[in-house]
Amino acid sequence: MNEHTENIDNICATLDKLTIDSLILMQEEIELKLIAENAMIGGETHLAKSRYILGQNNVSSIQLPTENSPEFRALTTIDLSIDEFGLHQFSLESKKPDNENYINPIKWFGYLTPQNLSFAQNLYRQALQWIIQAANIQCKLKETCKQINQLKQIKYIINKENK
């Protein structure tokens, strides 16, 4: 009976720690997404200013490449690594444009683009950095939730066996 109580106490203590961890991770993820949102709002403002200068339809999805456009590679990619605890960790990797495979996307909007378009580009790159951090936190949160569920199941089984 004592061993059973001790086991349950240990599980409950671990569950408490994991619950606090998950609350902290949730808070961190929300904060990161709000920071990313701020960067995106800044980017949208600069896109709007660019539209004012270049014209409504000159900074829109019409300029984006389509399935008929020539093949090109992403300038910003992610590297995925798995740490010693089996958690997925993302990191951003940026390449320099070479005008062949790697094209600076700003050129889709013309060769004489307003400075606001470069400001928008920088702000969206910043938003990406925050979003990747949020993705890492989300992975940790998912793993913590998984551990909590596993412990709850163990606790349920122990309680059931000792009834």
Binding site: M40, L47, Q63, L64, P65, A74, A120, Y124, A127
Partner: peptide, 15 residues
Amino acid sequence: EDTCVGFLLGGVGEI
């Protein structure tokens, strides 16, 4: 439109 234009401007787009 703005989200796609913005993030593609940030360099994530690929064909």
